[in-house]
Design a binder for these strands. Structure first.
Length: 863
RNA sequence: GCCGGUGUGGCGGAAUGGCAGACGCGGAGCACUCAAAAUGCUCUGUCCGAAAGGGCGUGUGGGUUCGAGUCCCACCACCGGUACCA
């Protein structure tokens, strides 16, 4: 039984014989040959898990941020395989986009060649990292066989009225010469190049994501607990639902009513003027109907607004500007004439582009009123007592309510016209006709009813979220599959003509000039009207690459399928993604768009779920010298070169051990040398095991067995809580304990030593798969440890028979006692009282209270 | 401004309301070695003390509790999101 393997006494001196390079080369070759991590097919009866890392963009080489993200992805994928799941863990590339095009412009390279050369480099890096992908499912969004289905998706949305064209002021990057989605404007600057964004009026394609605003918001509730709280919060804020009322105002001398949205319809009596966005059609119309002088002043103002950048526009402490249009709106509740101003603090694309101004109760309106000397009328007494929404009404001696009235002196103290501070808090209505005396909440309900009854208003919601602008005036993207006919109609490219493939870049001018480079491809542009056969033009724009990434997780289910975007049956089997892992930089854009498209596909009946990613893990960033790694800052550590010295396993272990997944990591703090030492120690433990695989575990050293089994029991919870750093720490403890057992305890032949080494190899596979495979082989097993089922912990080894109890006296620990785990309270207390240290600490004092919580704590109070 | 998060040794970080600092990095010392590397061992929050032992310690100030890094209140600092969104 205790037959031993021949001990290897010839281990070379360096690293105790551990050779990271030889090991990783060996196992990478074997994995490439055997392809062991391919997802199981239809005959596979195991439960399924879909694990996905946000796919990379193929710019340059990968950096340490990728090393971190994909290390975590691999931990999760390998974990679920050990836990008995059929795991799908694919990889692909988000390979359309600006950087390829910019590289093409700068270096004269074909964006295709640049892109696919980078992808090849990435693939090598991922192979060298030992990532356990299903390599049979690779996709690139720039392949026609992928973007053909982008075009399908576009036409699907078009048919359902969810893709439409409109002219509106858009965010324009003067450097990249292209429009940007709202989400791509950061601090008034272009997210990619940092140039100041300006507004420009253009006709563009939009996806009607606002139709889904309520569902996108409400469905976040079901993600609670499965997505990071932070991301849920960011999405909620981004969608920004405001609840209030629409109110219709007559405009003197104007043919139709103008509607405004307000979250405070209760303050309608306090409206003293009316403001329209200068860049709205309404402003132009109103100005056109005014005097020549006003028209001139308005034109000047509009021009100056157009010149200001988003940064200027967004600075909050900027003084208010505007022009009086010499027109009047009529307050529907009391018939008052309200002067109409055009001012750029009102946005054309939020609400209805016009507001009723209530300076007493809105800070912006107040600032404007004070700048232009407009009247301020208080209609909410914020000094009146309000508890919640219910006014506290005191009763007199006869039980009649006492009208608290209005305290004129305290009101004048807080008069906004004088203090410059708007009264936005709770209060009771005054100067408001039938609303007087009501709380804010009741007044909102009452006035909304009144307006609805009069047909001049209604309850309404407004969203911060805007429709998704998807046209881009760039070459390297999915061509929009639409045709512009001679007579001004728009028609989809007929399905039998899809995919609409990008023309050859040869001869095209990709330099940004404000119009799409595809417009220069005259042959490509020319097509025929599918209805009449007359000559027609293609749409020269390409799609935002966020369209590509909004549904790619479904394409992985059958990446080569030439007949459909994805098979519904496969989606029902694998999707939604169980575990989605990536950077927090996609907390809004990508995730919101993917959620939107998922809901659209659900509505069409192609999928049976409404949220694409069941759980989301956001890893932090890898920083160098305290700031985000980037090529432009010159503080980039490349993924491939980071592995050269320490080896892939050490990089992975060092990253996993560096701290919590969601925290940022300073690369300076990451110790690959510590990881290397640990891996060499682990390897040496396996190397030193001298027992045969068929030893009887039960005969092994009990203390070491307990440690092994406790880790087997704890690690799954820790992994599921993404506490990877703690799992590595626990592995280190086990390896250290095993080392000790070999050197100065049970010895290398003890079954517990073998058991510990085998458990170490199996769990280490999550972090250091090459070393783990090598250990597994040294221990006498066939590959692959990556496919080995998790070893079940022995429950009898998890219960301790003796524990350390703590004795506290007045909150201070005065003694620790070794006691049986099943000790009863009385006995524990008497042992505690008998302890010499306890008696010394208690000398001369009386115990007034004793709390005994067996077996951990005895707590004495002496006063 | 509004919303959210985080503050623990020299550093990265552990800690179901129950021994704060697991594990590692860095540092000091020792063993092995002619020597170095590698490996192994010991120590390493801080103050008083020769030691035994004790005081103080999780951003600050309060509170709840037999007991608080952990729960509650207020404040400070830093980080992130968002910002004329009516």
């Amino acid at each position: 039984m205790s037959q031993t393997l021949p001990p290897d006494t010839t281990a070379p001196a360096d690293g105790g014989g551990y050779d990271a390079y030889a090991i990783q080369e060996k196992w990478q070759t074997r994995w490439a040959d055997a392809d062991p991590f391919r997802a199981g097919g239809a005959d596979d009866k195991r439960p399924r898990k879909y694990v996905l890392g946000m796919f990379p963009y193929p710019s340059g080489d990968l950096h340490m941020g990728h090393a971190e993200s994909y290390a975590y992805v691999d931990v999760v994928a390998r974990f679920w395989r050990h836990r008995g799941y059929n795991v799908l863990n694919p990889i692909g590339w988000d390979s359309f986009g600006l950087p390829a095009e910019n590289a093409a412009i700068q270096r004269g390279a074909d964006p295709r060649e640049w892109t696919y050369a980078n992808i090849e480099q990435h693939k090598k890096s991922f192979r060298a990292y030992g990532s356990s992908y299903d390599w049979s499912r690779i996709l690139h969004t720039s392949d026609p066989e992928y973007y053909r289905w982008n075009q399908w998706l576009f036409q699907l949305l078009y048919e359902r009225g969810l893709a439409y064209r409109k002219e509106s002021p858009v965010n324009w990057c003067p450097n990249d010469q292209t429009v940007l989605a709202n989400e791509q404007v950061v601090d008034g600057r272009c997210e990619r190049c940092g140039a100041e964004v300006v507004k420009k009026k253009l006709t563009q394609w939009y996806f009607k994501i606002t139709d889904y605003a309520d569902r996108l918001l409400d469905d976040l509730n079901q993600l609670e607990g499965f997505w990071p709280q932070k991301v849920i919060r960011m999405q909620r804020n981004w969608i920004g639902r405001s609840v209030g009322a629409d109110i219709d105002f007559e405009i003197e001398g104007h043919h139709e009513k103008v509607t405004v949205f307000s979250t405070r319809p209760d303050t309608l009596y306090g409206a003293t003027f009316f403001v329209v966005a200068p860049d709205s059609d309404l402003a132009s119309e109103l100005a056109a109907g005014s005097s020549a002088e006003v028209r001139l002043r308005f034109q000047d103002y509009l021009a100056s607004v157009g010149r200001s950048s988003e940064i200027e526009r967004q600075s909050t402490d900027r003084p208010k500007t505007g022009v009086f249009l010499e027109r009047y709106a009529v307050n529907p509740i009391n018939g008052e004439r309200l002067p109409i101003w055009a001012a750029d603090y009102v946005l054309a694309d939020y609400g209805h582009g016009a507001v009723m101004a209530v300076p007493a109760h809105d800070q912006r309106d107040l600032d404007f009123a004070r700048a232009f000397d407009l009247p301020v009328r208080v209609v909410v007494d914020t000094t009146a007592p309000i508890t919640g929404a219910i006014p506290i009404i005191e009763l007199d001696e006869n039980g009649e309510p006492i009208d608290p009235g209005t305290d004129e002196s305290s009101l004048s103290e807080i008069d906004p016209a004088r203090t410059g501070i708007a009264l936005t808090g709770e209060g009771r209505m005054i100067n408001s006709g039938s609303l007087d005396g009501l709380s804010k909440r009741n007044a909102i309900a009452r006035i909304t009813e009144q307006l609805a009854a009069a047909g001049t208003g209604r309850a309404s919601k407004s969203y911060r979220l805007r429709d998704w602008l998807i046209s881009r005036q760039r070459f390297w993207g999915t061509p929009i599959p639409m045709i512009h006919t001679e007579d001004g109609r728009i028609a989809p490219v007929p399905v039998d003509q899809l995919p609409l493939i990008l023309p050859d870049v040869e001869g095209l001018d990709l330099t940004p000039k404000g119009t799409s480079p595809l417009g220069g491809a005259t042959e490509w542009m020319a097509t025929t009207d599918p209805d009449t056969g007359a000559p027609a033009l293609r749409d020269p724009d390409t799609m935002d690459t966020f369209v590509d990434s909004s549904w790619y997780f479904l394409r992985f289910l059958a990446p080569g399928d030439a007949t459909e975007a994805f098979p519904t049956a496969e989606a029902a089997k694998w999707a939604p993604v169980d575990s989605y892992i990536g950077g927090v930089e996609h907390a809004i854009l990508h995730l919101l768009y993917a959620r939107f498209i998922t809901k659209v596909l659900f509505d069409i009946g192609l999928i049976d779920f409404t949220e694409p990613f069941s759980t989301l893990v956001n890893q932090g960033m890898v920083l160098l010298a305290g700031s985000k790694m980037s090529k432009s800052k010159g503080n980039l550590i490349e993924f491939a070169s980071s592995m050269l010295d320490p080896g892939a396993d050490a990089v992975r272990v060092a990253i996993a051990f560096a701290g919590p997944v969601e925290d940022d990591i300073n690369w300076e703090d990451v110790s690959t040398t510590g990881a290397q030492k640990f891996l060499a120690r682990a390897w040496r433990v396996a190397h030193d095991v001298s027992s045969h695989p068929d030893v009887v575990w039960a005969e092994g050293d009990q203390a070491l067995r307990r440690l092994t089994h406790r880790l087997l029991a704890d690690a799954p919870n820790l992994v599921e809580q993404t506490k990877f750093n703690v799992v590595v720490a626990r592995l280190m403890e086990l390896v250290n304990a095993t080392r000790k057992a070999i050197d100065s305890g049970a010895g290398p032949a003890d079954p517990a030593v073998r058991e510990a080494a085998e458990a170490t190899a199996m769990i280490l596979d999550l972090f250091a798969p090459h070393t783990a495979e090598e250990m597994w082989e040294m221990l006498g097993y066939e590959p692959f440890v990556g496919l080995v089922p998790w070893r079940q912990p022995d429950a009898t080894l998890l219960v301790e028979d003796s524990v350390t109890a703590v004795v506290q006296i007045d909150g201070k620990v005065r003694a620790t006692l070794d006691v049986p785990a099943r000790i009863d309270p009385k006995e524990l207390e008497s042992i505690a009282r008998a302890d010499a240290r306890v008696q010394r600490a208690l000398a001369g004092r009386d115990v007034t209270r004793a709390i005994v919580r067996p077996p951990k704590v005895v707590s004495f109070s002496t006063h």
